[in-house]
Simulated scan of single mutants.
Amino acid sequence: MNLVPTTVPDGVSLLLVDDHLIFLDGLSLALAPLARDLRVDSAASVQAAEQCLASHDYDLVLLDLKLPDESGLSVLQRWQREGRSTPVAILSASESAQDAHAARQAGALGFISKSASGAQLREAVGRLLLGENLPLPASEPATALTPRQQEILLLLAEGLPNKAIGRRLKLSEETVKTHLRSLFQTLQVHTRTACVTVARQRGWL
């Protein structure tokens, strides 16, 4: 069954931003049947992408999350602050629902997995070009924190060291460390900064 939308206008233009050149070539070939007179430009870095955007108006930018000079999420957030109006979707090897939701919050219209088939890719890009937002993947089930873990997380977000958290909650420093290890395991992180960042992304802070 042909999944490509039949109403994508002729002459649309896309900008693909990814630092893997072989992947860019394959992506261009996969998108070629999407519309007549399709223009597909590519950039291997954020700097190159911004040079393209300065010289041409694109209907859609497909942006990788991991780029050599700046992360995709950081780029999205900065472009939003700068008031750039070009629609952007993320095309990434990540299968994480968390990454997809973070991308949407940063301003992306959709999140497309690099594991998608050519037909799935053309369908997704076609829908974006027709003004739709792609549905987000289902979020991972939230793991409930204990009241004590929530208290420690809030104090961690304030930047308090373990000893100060213990004094505030009348706990030994070793008990605080035990709760932190549990939090790190729950959030699949290994630093305090990452713990706070992921907790905020999940809406726990």
Rank of each mutant, 00 (worst) to 15 (best):
residue 107 G to D: 09
residue 101 H to Q: 08
residue 57 D to A: 13
residue 175 T to M: 11
residue 164 A to F: 07
residue 11 G to I: 05
residue 127 R to W: 03
residue 65 L to C: 08
residue 151 E to S: 15
residue 159 G to R: 11
residue 114 K to W: 01
residue 59 D to K: 05
residue 106 A to Q: 03
residue 109 L to Y: 05
residue 112 I to G: 01
residue 93 A to Y: 03
residue 93 A to C: 13
residue 169 L to I: 06
residue 159 G to C: 12
residue 192 R to F: 10
residue 130 L to D: 01
residue 144 A to L: 11
residue 56 H to K: 10
residue 185 Q to L: 14
residue 38 L to T: 00
residue 48 A to M: 09
residue 54 A to S: 11
residue 193 T to A: 14
residue 54 A to Q: 05
residue 75 V to T: 15
residue 179 H to Q: 14
residue 186 T to M: 14
residue 150 Q to E: 15
residue 71 S to F: 03
residue 166 G to A: 06
residue 113 S to Y: 02
residue 41 D to K: 13
residue 17 V to S: 03
residue 126 G to K: 01
residue 121 L to Q: 00
residue 38 L to D: 00
residue 204 W to V: 13
residue 62 L to P: 04
residue 195 C to K: 02
residue 77 Q to T: 14
residue 189 V to W: 00
residue 157 A to W: 03
residue 1 M to I: 08
residue 114 K to P: 10
residue 161 P to M: 06
residue 43 A to C: 12
residue 175 T to G: 10
residue 92 S to M: 05
residue 194 A to Y: 01
residue 64 D to N: 08
residue 88 V to H: 02
residue 136 L to P: 12
residue 165 I to W: 04
residue 150 Q to P: 14
residue 127 R to K: 10
residue 96 S to N: 09
residue 158 E to N: 09
residue 199 A to T: 10
residue 20 H to I: 13
residue 165 I to A: 09
residue 124 A to N: 06
residue 55 S to K: 11
residue 6 T to L: 11
residue 130 L to E: 04
residue 87 P to C: 08
residue 5 P to D: 00
residue 143 T to S: 11
residue 84 R to F: 05
residue 124 A to P: 13
residue 157 A to L: 12
residue 109 L to N: 05
residue 62 L to F: 00
residue 75 V to M: 10
residue 72 G to V: 07
residue 175 T to F: 02
residue 121 L to R: 00
residue 28 S to V: 06
residue 108 A to T: 08
residue 113 S to Q: 12
residue 193 T to C: 08
residue 182 S to F: 06
residue 190 H to V: 15
residue 164 A to G: 03
residue 24 L to K: 05
residue 122 R to A: 06
residue 88 V to W: 03
residue 160 L to R: 07
residue 110 G to L: 05
residue 124 A to R: 04
residue 142 A to E: 12
residue 54 A to I: 09
residue 118 G to E: 08
residue 203 G to N: 06
residue 146 T to W: 06
residue 23 F to C: 07
residue 189 V to C: 02
residue 113 S to V: 12
residue 47 Q to V: 13
residue 115 S to N: 11
residue 199 A to Y: 03
residue 136 L to N: 04
residue 136 L to C: 08
residue 92 S to Y: 00
residue 100 A to E: 05
residue 13 S to K: 15
residue 192 R to K: 13
residue 13 S to I: 12
residue 31 L to P: 11
residue 13 S to E: 10
residue 88 V to Q: 02
residue 56 H to V: 14
residue 106 A to W: 05
residue 172 S to Y: 01
residue 133 N to V: 12
residue 61 V to M: 05
residue 44 A to I: 11
residue 180 L to K: 14
residue 116 A to T: 07
residue 39 R to T: 11
residue 23 F to K: 02
residue 44 A to H: 06
residue 71 S to Y: 02
residue 166 G to N: 04
residue 156 L to I: 07
residue 33 P to D: 01
residue 59 D to M: 02
residue 147 P to T: 06
residue 19 D to V: 05
residue 27 L to F: 02
